[in-house]
Amino acid sequence: MNKLHLSEDEQDCLQELINVAMGQASDQLARYLDSFVYLKVPSIESVDADSLATTLDQQQAAMAVVSQGFFGYEGIRGEALLVYQDEDSERLADLLGYEPDELSKDEQLIDISSILTTTFLNVFASQIENQISYSAPKLLPSRANSLSEHLEQLTFNWDLALKVNINYQVTDYSFNCNMVLLIPETAINNIKVVLNRILEEL
């Protein structure tokens, strides 16, 4: 996570906050979904702008991406991308207990992504005594390069991407999706301030 220029303590603190947030979000989500799904505490890595495009581009052919902006106090803002493999996204919709014809696959995917993102970030925000608002989630068009195009057209320059690998386990199935948090530099600095406040309190 060196791209962040975080000290070892700051990095440890951030990882711990994310672990706790994802743990609680998973639990809430599992309850909401009648315990059909549970998620393991995720692994986290930071990715810089260049390598994000290349990492994700490799999988691009068969990928579904849902994006959702978030913004809180103290300049903490960014955009969350949920990246699914196409076949997983279809399976996910089935597994989440929606009626088959009830709504489109796209809508199911957007729904579940939004729930994941907002539950996770809400818990994260409450730990750092912040409150986060969200823009409506959007499914990126499913064609080659749509992710790269999207990254170019963001309304802010992001300097860091936190890639959170989420592992779903549902009885017989297990599959992965990546949550990528794109965070601009000003927000990183603000997060650092918060991290240091927490560390000082210890």
């Binding site: 809430q28 989500l29 309850r31 909401y32 709504l103 489109s104 796209d106 809508e107 957007i110 729904d111 939004s114 729930i115 907002t118 539950t119 809400n122 608002s133 969200y134 409506a136 989630p137 959007k138 499914l139």
Partner: peptide, 19 residues
């Protein structure tokens, strides 16, 4: 959808593009 808002305390959305 409304239950998810109550239970999870998170916002939810519905876009004209899907519905």
């Amino acid at each position: 959808k409304l239950s998810s808002v109550l239970q999870l305390g998170t916002p939810n959305f519905c876009s004209w593009e899907q519905r």
